[in-house]
């Protein structure tokens, strides 16, 4: 692949850094427009996450030159992300059970069974 060729020498064609800075700024402005314009929580949340991930990817790929490095380096960089997603998935069942105990129904139900 071309990426390997580029990684062999550091002298790949320099990306237009200024353009990337401008895109990052525009994405930030878009992020700021999401909360006042989008009222649906889930839509606004997903939009914000997508924008944030896009910005993070731009920084990693172009400013940190990950695009021009060997694939192994991207694997190293991606490992913590995979582990974090796994951590969040592992936390999810715990979260739903915690919110369930907050509902006011349960304490009365418990005291009733204690009386009998």
């Amino acid at each position: 692949m071309m990426a390997n060729e580029a990684a062999a020498h550091a002298d790949h064609v320099e990306p237009n850094y200024f353009a990337i800075m401008v895109i990052l700024t525009i994405l930030t402005i878009l992020e700021l427009m999401v909360p006042p314009l989008v009222s649906a929580k889930l839509t606004a949340g997903s939009l914000l996450v997508i924008l944030a991930v896009a910005k993070a990817l731009l920084v990693a790929l172009y400013f940190m030159h990950l695009r021009f490095e060997r694939t192994t380096l991207s694997v190293i960089a991606l490992t913590p992300m995979v582990i974090c997603v796994f951590l969040i998935i592992m936390l999810l069942p715990d979260l739903t059970s915690t919110t369930r105990t907050y509902t006011p129904v349960e304490p009365t139900a418990m005291s009733e069974t204690a009386d009998h």
Partner: peptide, 8 residues
């Protein structure tokens, strides 16, 4: 990568 796990 390690630092990213701390933040994560």
């Amino acid at each position: 990568a390690g630092d990213a796990m701390s933040f994560g």
